[in-house]
Every structure is written in structure tokens, then in C-alpha cells.
Amino acid sequence: MNTNRPWWRPDGFYIYAVLYLIFIYLPVLFLPVFSFNNSKYIAFPLKGFTLKWYEAMINNPPMLNALMNSIKIGLIVAILSTIFGLLAAKAVTRYRMPGRAPVVGFIMIPLVIPEIILGISLLILLSLADIPLSLLTVGFAHLLLCVPFSMLVLVSRMEGFDKSMEEAGLDLGENAWMTFWRVTFPIVLPGIIASLLLTFTISFDEFVLAFFLSSIEQTLPVYIWSSLRFPSKLPPTLALGAAIFMASFIVVTFAEWIRRRGVRLDSTSGI
């Protein structure tokens, strides 16, 4: 596929790539294997096929509740951080501002300090200010973590198209708001989608901040953490992990299929 060597004498890089894929896939593939294993112990030898852990997963209100919490937080954080990121990206790419570099550096700090420090410093502040821990505090912490990522994605997208497009929108009689909707938004849309996906994924999988900043209501990673300590809770968790993996695989495949179809339709309708 990538070289013109015969398949029985592959390129060294190709062999390396295959070995690398085995390295990153192998451990992860054992998770679904054990989700079908008829034993509550995650150990060899395998004991036979079962679907009972998937049944247990569906009949596990705390886990489903944690899943719902994570989805809720993920959606809200994705939308808010993308809005914040978009406003910030517009500001730093479109306006001459004094102090721009230090301000951008400040916003990017969450990327360069260990998450545990972010988590405990927020915990200290909240407890000194007597603000009770809740899903809200987790969501706020996730917002801080996600805005820099969103901003990075959107800044590169904003830099990729010319400022004069927006000026043309204003010049043709639309105010700033309508120019945003009719010009900026459609052009940066791919970046917005990328930002939404990225920030949702980050929030959905985030454990450290949620661990320090949540109370009774758990997010899914916090629930998984607790289940890792209780072997009896583990197999249904593996089932859920496998199910989420399959779901995201289907979503991404579907999205890619739509995208390719879209591209094909575009290219045929034009000529």
C-alpha cells in the first residue's frame, strides 16, 4: 500500500508500524474479552462466554447515573468551552491588543501544570469560600481545562482564513453579529465541530479533577475508579467500557462516511 516492495519483503518501517500497533492495541483488546468472560475474576484462564455482565450493566443504576452525569457535563462543557474558545480565538487573531502574548500564555496555563495541582488548588479555594462540591464544580474545572484546547483548535482555524472575509461581511452592510453568523461561523464550522468533539472527549474521560471536586454525584471515571477497587463491580464496568468504545467507533465511522459522501456530492454537483 505504501511501498512498491513485495509483501514478503516489507520495509523495516512497515514492520515497526505493525509492531507498534500491536503494542497499543493488545492490552486494550483484553478489556472486551473479559467483559464476555463468565467469571467475576479478571484473570486467566477464561471461563466461557457470557452476556451477563452486559445485563448487569443495564441493571446498574449508580453506574448509569454516573454515565448520564458524565454525558451531561461533557455536553455542557463542550458547548461552553467552544463558545469561550471561539470568542477568545476571535479576539487574539483579529484585534491588535496590548498584552496579547501574556494573556494567551495565562489562558494556556492549564496545559502546562499537572492536573492534580489544578484539582487541589480549586478544592482549597472552594472549601475556603464555603462552596459545596457538586457536579457544577466538576463542570467548572473541566471548563478551565477545555478552553485552552478549544482555543488552540479554533485559533489555527481562524488564522487559516483571511480577516478580509469578515470585513467584507461588515462592508456589505451586516453588523458584527450577523457577519459572525453569515461569514465566520460557516467558515470555522469544521474547527467548531473538532473543538466540540475534543472537549467532550476530554471532559468525558477526565478523572483527576472530578475525583477532587465531586461529592456524592459521581462522574463515570470516578465510578470506574471506585469499581477498580471492588472486583465484584469490575466486570459490568468492563462491559460498559466496551460498549462505549463500540458506540464511539460507530459514531466516528458514520461521521467519516457522511463526510466522504458529502465530499463526493460536492465535487459532482459543481461541474
Binding site: 463558545i83 469561550f84 474558545g85 470568542l87 477568545a88 476571535k90 479576539a91 487574539v92 483579529r94 484585534y95 491588535r96 491588543m97 496590548p98 496579547r100 494573556v103 495565562f106 489562558i107 496555563i109 492549564p110 489544578l118 488548588s121 480549586l122 482549597i124 479555594l125 467548572f140 474545572a141 471548563l143 478551565l144 478552553v147 482555543m151
Partner: peptide, 22 residues
């Protein structure tokens, strides 16, 4: 600068509250 910082203000506010102060 006024227009730029207006757009930045939500992000900056969140970052001051959730990052600088902590």
C-alpha cells in the same frame, strides 16, 4: 483593544476565578 478584551472577558474571568485565584 477594547473590542478584543470584550471578547476575551468571559474566558479571562473564568481563568482568573478558576486558575489565578486558586
Amino acid at each position: 483593544p477594547v473590542r478584543g478584551y470584550t471578547l476575551l472577558s468571559p474566558t479571562l474571568l473564568a481563568m482568573i476565578l478558576g486558575l489565578a485565584m486558586p
